[in-house]
Amino acid sequence: MDWQHDGSTRHRWVAEVLEQLLAEPHEGPAHPPESFCKVIDHLMNPADALNEGLDRPNALRQLNDALMREGFEAFYGEDKHCYLRHVGTNTVSVLAKNPHRPLSAAEMQRRSALAAFLDTCSEDELIEQVLLPMFRQLGFHRITAAGHRDKALEYGKDIWMRYTLPTQHFLYFGIQVKRGKLDAMGKSRAGSANIAEIHQQALMMLAHEIFDPETNRRMLVDHAFIVAGGEITKAARNWLANVLDASKRSQIIFMDRDDILNQFVVTSLPLPERAMPAAPTPPLSTVQPPF
């Protein structure tokens, strides 16, 4: 059958292929299958634009007319790839990203802008505007930040969250966040925190239960993230490893400034508002008078 000359047959064939792609395994209703996302990105390649600009507004509008009925929206990222966003949760469906790969020029600019933001942000801004969106995008669920109001009941955790394994079992994570550098000095310097303080908070985090309202159960934290907006020195890591017993040592995960920057950039998340580059000021010759 020469389906290339039969429009209805071709449409049925395309529909069947799309149904097969959408039937593939995926993480949940907010994440379409990876193969479907690859097809969308390939079909929306800016190089294939015809009678429109590289941002393909006409093609994007037609695509979104169909996607919006299913609760999704297509958009172009700064890397010129087309992504899908779940409207209800604002979750972006991206292909598996390697934070250790070489970054593009655009990604390096985003990394520099985010690094400048980390230099001046508060601990709450680091949590709410960087870490929470990043962990959601990485597939964690039930992400709950303690906030300053609940510090008395926090038990060493700034954030707790849950990760669902492919077997549908849950792992629980607690996160202790420090805005600046973590070192092993006997006394904390300005802008840095002593790892001995983190040690006590990590032990408290691992020893106290958290309540998961979705399962209506109290659970112990399986792993503790130690997250710093600055460097976590080698001396600090070694000190903590030496004072923890073998079982506790395996439960500690470090994430420092470089890890945050690389993970955030490769997942194509929007930068915090204060990290966005300022719009250039138009030359005086182009400014129109208000009358």
Rank of each mutant, 00 (worst) to 15 (best):
M108P: 02
F117H: 08
M161Q: 06
L131S: 03
P133H: 02
R249L: 08
F291L: 10
V14M: 08
I195C: 12
I127K: 07
D222S: 11
H11N: 05
A202I: 14
E70L: 08
E128L: 08
T144E: 14
A241T: 12
L132I: 15
S247A: 13
S93Y: 00
L18P: 01
M205I: 06
V243C: 10
H141F: 13
P213I: 08
G88E: 13
V221N: 14
L165F: 08
P213W: 04
L182K: 02
A30C: 05
D158E: 02
A202R: 00
Q168N: 12
A275G: 09
R111E: 09
E214S: 14
L50K: 08
A236T: 00
S247L: 05
L132P: 15
P282C: 04
F117L: 06
H199P: 05
L131E: 01
D48C: 08
W13P: 04
L240I: 11
N45Q: 01
A152S: 12
R101C: 00
L21D: 04
L95W: 05
P166Y: 06
Y172H: 05
P270Y: 06
W239N: 10
I159H: 07
A15R: 14
G229Y: 00
N64S: 06
T167P: 01
T164W: 12
L271P: 01
G139R: 09
P270T: 07
F75G: 04
V17K: 10
E107A: 05
D258Q: 14
E78L: 07
A207D: 11
F75V: 00
T281L: 13
M276H: 06
V177I: 09
L114H: 09
D212H: 01
E197Y: 09
L126P: 07
N242S: 14
E214T: 10
E209K: 09
P57R: 07
I260L: 09
